[in-house]
Design a protein around this nucleic acid. Structure first.
Lengths: 208, 208
DNA sequence: TAAATTACCATACAAATGTATGGTATTTTG
DNA sequence: CAAAATACCATACATTTGTATGGTAATTTA
C-alpha cells in the first residue's frame, strides 16, 4: 500500500530519522529547509505532506516538531547491552551488542558507560541474579570492597575489588569461586568501572 | 556539590521525563504550564531556569522544545520514596515521602507510579531484599502470580497476588510467612499496584 | 497530448513559543 | 533579623512555527 518515495523525499525522511535518533528531537520545517538549502519552509511542508500521504510519517497538526515516524524502530534508541558477565566463569564480551534493553531516548548515558546483563549465580550473595542489569560507571575510582566490572583477557567479570600492595584481588561473593589475583602490571587487565546499581524489570522477559 | 531539587521542581522534572519517555518529545513551556495548572508560561520558564541552575537540564535558547536532560551526567533522577513495605509485618505508609532515591534513568517509571523501600526478608525468595526499591505501577490490572503492592488496614504489603472465587490471596515468597486471605468485600483492603521493577543502589547507604 | 506529479519559489498570517521584566507573598537560609 | 530563594502572577515582544495560497518549471504518467 505504501507508495515509493522519490529520491528527495527519501533524503528528507533520512534526515528526519537522523535527527530523531541523534538529537532525540524531530526537526522543525525551518531546520529541514535550512539543512537542504531551501529558501522557505513551504517546500519542506509539501514534502512532508507527500511523505505522509505515502504513509511513512504522521503529522500532528499545529504541534511544533510534531512529526512522527510510522516506522517501527523510532522512539526507542535501544541501548546495547555490551555483554554478559559472571564472576565465576568469565564470559566473552561480544564485539557487538548481544541484546538491548528498552531504553528511552532520553536515557543517554555517558559514552564510556554501559550496561551488562548478569548471568549465573556467582554474585547471588551480593543479591545480584541472573538476568539482572548492572549499571557500570567508568568514571569512578574503585575503593576496596566495592563491586567492579573489569575486563581480563577479553572477558568481563563482576566482582568485589580489593587493592593490595602489588596486586589486585577480585573476589566473588559466592565462596565456590576462588578469588582472582592479578599482578598490577598484567597487560590485559583493565578495570572498567564501578557497579553503581542493579536494575531488574519485572516485565516478563526471560532472564536468559 | 549537587544541589537538591525542591518538590515542585522535582515534579516538573518528572513530568519532563515522562513526556520524553512517553511522547518522545520534550514539552513546551505552555504544555507544562497547562499540565500543572499555571496560568502563564513564565512560571514554568522560571522553574526550568532553577532546575537548569542545579544541573539537571539544559535549555537550548530559542529552540522550541529545546530542553535536554543532563541525566547523561547525572544518570539518576531523584524520586521520592513514599513508604516502606514488608510482606510479613506490614509497615505504615507515610503520608509524605520519607526519603528519596536516585533512580537510574534506565529504570522505567510509568506515569503515576511510585517507589517503596522494602524492609525485611519476606521477599527474598523473589530476589527482593531489605533496602531494595520497588517500582509500583498503579495503572495495571494484576494477574495471578504477579507481585503486587497493597494496603491492608493502613499498612502496606508486597506479595504475590492470586485471585480466587470470593477472595484474594496474598502469598509471601518466604514460606515462613503464611498467606493472607482477604474477602473481596473487605473494606480496608486496597490494591495499590503492580511491582514492575526493582532497583538497588550499590552506593554506601545502609540497606535498612 | 493532456493531466498529474514533482520540486521548488514567494508571500501572508494566526498561533505558538521562548524570553524579558516587574510584581507579590511565602518560605528558607545565614 | 535580613537576605536569598521559592512560587506564583501579569503583561509585553520578537521569533518561530505550522499552515494556506498562488505561482513557475520540469518531469512523469495515462
Amino acid at each position: 500500500m505504501k507508495k515509493e518515495l522519490t529520491t528527495i523525499q527519501r533524503d528528507i525522511l533520512g534526515f528526519l530519522i537522523d535527527q530523531i535518533k541523534g538529537k532525540g528531537l524531530p526537526p522543525t520545517l525551518a531546520e529541514v529547509a535550512n539543512h537542504f538549502g531551501y529558501r522557505n519552509r513551504a517546500t519542506v511542508q509539501q514534502h512532508f505532506s507527500a511523505i505522509e500521504k505515502k504513509g511513512f510519517i504522521k503529522k500532528n497538526p499545529k504541534l511544533s516538531r510534531g512529526i512522527e515516524l510510522t516506522l517501527e524502530d523510532k522512539f526507542f534508541v535501544p541501548k546495547p547491552i555490551l555483554g554478559e558477565v559472571a564472576a565465576g566463569n568469565p564470559l566473552t564480551i561480544y564485539p557487538d551488542a548481544i541484546d538491548t534493553v528498552e531504553l528511552p531516548t532520553i536515557a543517554r548515558m555517558p559514552k564510556d558507560s554501559f550496561l551488562l546483563r548478569v548471568k549465573g549465580d556467582s554474585l547471588k550473595d551480593a543479591y545480584i541474579f541472573s538476568g539482572d542489569i548492572v549499571i557500570v560507571n567508568p568514571n569512578l575510582e574503585p575503593k576496596n570492597g566495592q563491586i567492579v566490572a573489569a575486563v581480563l583477557d577479553d572477558a568481563a567479570v563482576v566482582k568485589r575489588f580489593y587493592k593490595k600492595k602489588n596486586e589486585i584481588e577480585l573476589v566473588s561473593e559466592n565462596p565456590e569461586y576462588k578469588p582472582i589475583v592479578i599482578d598490577k602490571k598484567h597487560p590485559s587487565f583493565k578495570l572498567v568501572g564501578i557497579v553503581v546499581g542493579v536494575y531488574r524489570s519485572m516485565e516478563k522477559k526471560k532472564a536468559g
